[in-house]
Design a protein around this nucleic acid. Structure first.
Length: 684
DNA sequence: TACGTCCCTG
DNA sequence: CAGGGACGTA
């Protein structure tokens, strides 16, 4: 932890240093968060992703996807760790043995259960092997091309989900899959069910997440099923195109019944989920077969079969991902889940694009009241629930002043639409994203009057955020954090980095980070009109804010000497105007013959108030606190008395008044600390 | 040196 | 009405 690291970069003035020394708790929290975040960065791919995703479904997918990545031929032992693997034509493994030709081509097109044709003894095939041996060289070359095509399939940048969201979600598994791949060259690996699901979920057992893990596991099993369905569907597609050849291939392969287990490697293999894996493998082979077909004929672009596969996979994965989300949510947050799922399920399965949009809209943000940086991922539960349901402390309106319905409160009138995947208005997006990225965990935003979505709306992804493992952040994100330290917790960043974005996980994240109006959370190096407006409203509460206080309330501003001066100057100008107005009305009252200063009261109907309100609260979107009326009344009386006493002859006759008024500052509502506040005010 | 106030300008 | 300069204060 290097709490001060982020401040070292820029020299701080003495006052700023003092300010730092007297930092508020929240500021210190911010440091903790930030440093905690940096700590989080050091955590390489770690626990949760591993522990939650290695269920069979995940590993299958990742393996499937990882194959092209490792740039080697598909290895049956990956998908067939068991006997079936060895039953496959041996050629598939190394591609060097005789007989790779016809069998390799024929097998993929068969629709007989994969293991059966696979198990077809080499003895029975030997004739065909001999016949085809002549062309084996050619076929090898063909195979290489096909594999490169398949490789390209999963690497394709276009396509939304295929190699992206999965890549993000299963990235680690995938990496491991690559290693496994190599390992399994000779040593059939233990089925994932054993090592993966059980072994890796186990660490979570006993924790509040155990149940969630279980749920997730089940969902991933469901994902498997979906994949199976997909394979079958894909097979049908292939068939429709290649009926003749498929039949031909089937003829070749069908007469090859054999029990698995003729091969030596089979010994060490276990036999769980063999049928499923066989089908998966078959599907892969079918693709390969198709590729070979197209290789000789249609060579342009992405093969249609691949496209079909891609589309279907995308669709299925999107759906299954939703299921997983639902499942986990249901587990860790049953009450909300019920509500959310109802709506969620009524929605069409979101495509990757939709999800990307959803993310860009900042709707899958962290809980606003993300209590403390120590709220490490995985330790959710009651704190989260509290934070989510508690709708956190103060609101702007909880103090003397509040926003009128016309103004800042507007966002709160956003219909409680729950987990809607439909993108919201841009302004809202920025606000929401600002919550996500900015100060959400302070819980300052989370008041009902601030238009913060209800707890239910805070996103079903939230639990997942906590589950998803730590991931190395994109350099750009890290850079941004270093330059403009935001109180992002590691979990925040994780969720950002891990969100299954659209076509390119990183790219989409980048887009979301860069493209979305970031001003509300990005540390401003200059004060904006929004800040001015905010300052004006703050003037209703404090006429003499210290620079320390200002720093506290303009958290999204990168304070420098210049910024501080400008803010101070603003308030100086506010005071100037204020006193001028009050003096004017005091004199006016004197002229009007007012005798008793005590009768002077500033009400919301008075001209003085109207003038002041017009100045500090244009649009009247903020309900001026009553306290301000009292202060104004007192100021008016003081001026009145002083003028009546002829003190205005003294050049510094106002100073005593200033001194009195300066003691009448009241606390500023916490809501003003919200980063998005300035932005929000601007739009109101 | 930082801040506050006054005065002035556009 | 925001902002700059001059000046005073701590």
């Amino acid at each position: 932890m290097i709490p001060n690291q982020l401040r070292v970069s820029s020299p701080v003035s003495r006052q700023e240093q003092e300010t730092m020394d007297g930092r508020t708790g929240s500021e210190q929290d911010r440091d903790r968060v930030t440093s905690g975040h940096s700590q989080g960065l050091k955590l390489e791919p770690c626990f949760q992703t591993d522990s939650l995703l290695p269920s069979p479904g995940a590993s299958l997918i990742s393996q499937l996807l990882s194959h092209p990545m490792v740039g080697r031929s598909l290895d049956p032992t990956i998908i067939f760790p068991s006997s079936q693997a060895v039953a496959l034509p041996q050629d598939y493994k190394c591609g060097a043995s005789p007989g790779e030709g016809a069998q390799a081509l024929a097998f993929p097109r068969t629709h007989a259960p994969a293991p059966v044709p696979c198990a077809a003894g080499r003895d029975q095939l030997s004739d065909q092997h001999l016949q085809n041996q002549v062309s084996s060289q050619h076929l090898r070359a063909k195979r290489a091309r096909v594999e490169s095509i398949i490789q390209g399939m999963s690497l394709l940048p276009t396509p939304q989900a295929f190699g992206t969201s999965l890549e993000a979600a299963f990235g680690h598994e995938r990496e491991r899959g690559g290693e496994m791949h190599r390992e399994s060259k000779r040593k059939p690996r233990v089925p994932q069910q054993a090592t993966g699901a059980a072994g890796q979920v186990a660490p979570m057992a006993g924790s509040p997440h155990a149940e969630g893990c279980q749920q997730l596991k089940e969902q991933l099993c469901f994902l498997e099923q979906q994949l199976r369905w997909l394979q079958e569907k894909f097979s049908q597609v292939c068939d429709s195109g290649d009926t003749a050849q498929t039949q031909e291939g089937a003829e070749k392969v069908h007469p090859l019944p054999e029990k698995p287990g003729d091969r030596p490697e089979e010994d060490s293999a276990t036999a769980t989920s063999d049928a499923r894996k066989a089908r998966l493998w078959k599907s892969v082979l079918e693709v390969r077969g198709l590729e070979e077909e197209e290789d000789s004929g249609d060579t342009g672009g992405l093969p249609s079969a691949a496209r079909v596969l891609s589309q279907a996979l995308k669709h299925e994965l999107a759906g299954v991902t939703s299921q997983v989300v639902d499942s986990v949510l249901k587990t860790v947050w049953p009450k909300a889940a019920n509500h959310l799922l109802q709506q969620h399920r009524s929605l069409p399965v979101p495509g990757p694009d939709v999800r990307r949009e959803y993310f860009a809209a900042g709707k899958c943000r962290k809980p606003l009241a993300k209590s403390s940086p120590r709220n490490a991922p995985g330790s959710m539960g009651s704190p989260q629930a509290k934070a989510l349901s508690g709708a956190s402390g103060k609101s702007l309106g909880s103090h003397a002043g509040s926003f009128s319905s016309k103004g800042v409160r507007k966002p709160s009138q956003v219909p409680s639409m729950g987990y809607s995947l439909v993108s919201a208005a841009p302004v809202q997006d920025s606000q929401l994203l600002s919550q996500l990225l900015g100060y959400g965990q302070h819980g300052l935003w989370g008041s009902s009057s601030r238009g913060s979505p209800s707890a239910l709306e805070r996103g079903p992804l939230e639990p997942l955020d906590l589950h998803w493992g730590t991931v190395k952040l994109r350099p750009s994100v890290v850079r941004q954090q270093q330059q403009h330290p935001l109180p992002l917790s590691p979990a925040d960043m994780e969720s950002l980095a891990l969100l299954p974005a659209g076509r390119d996980g990183c790219g989409e994240l980048q887009a979301a980070m860069d493209g979305v109006p970031f001003a509300s959370t990005h540390m401003q190096e200059a004060l904006t009109p929004g800040h001015l407006k905010k300052a004006k409203l703050m003037f209703f509460f404090t006429r003499y804010p210290s620079s320390t206080l200002l720093k506290t309330y303009f958290l999204d501003v990168q304070f420098s000497r210049c910024i501080t001066s400008q803010l101070i100057k603003w308030f100086s100008n506010f005071r100037e105007f204020y006193y001028i107005q009050v003096e004017k009305f005091a004199r006016q009252a004197l002229v009007e013959g007012v005798v008793d200063a005590g009768t002077l009261q500033v009400s919301r109907d008075s001209e003085l108030f109207r003038a002041l309100n017009m100045h500090y609260n244009k649009g009247n979107d903020f309900e001026v606190p009553g306290r301000f009326l009292e202060v104004a009344s007192l100021t008016l009386r003081e001026f009145f008395s002083a003028i009546r006493a002829g003190k205005d002859a003294d050049p510094s006759w106002k100073k005593p008044i200033y001194k009195i008024i300066s003691k009448l500052d009241s606390n500023i509502p916490e809501g003003f600390k919200t980063a998005g506040c300035s932005q929000e005010l601007l739009h109101s």
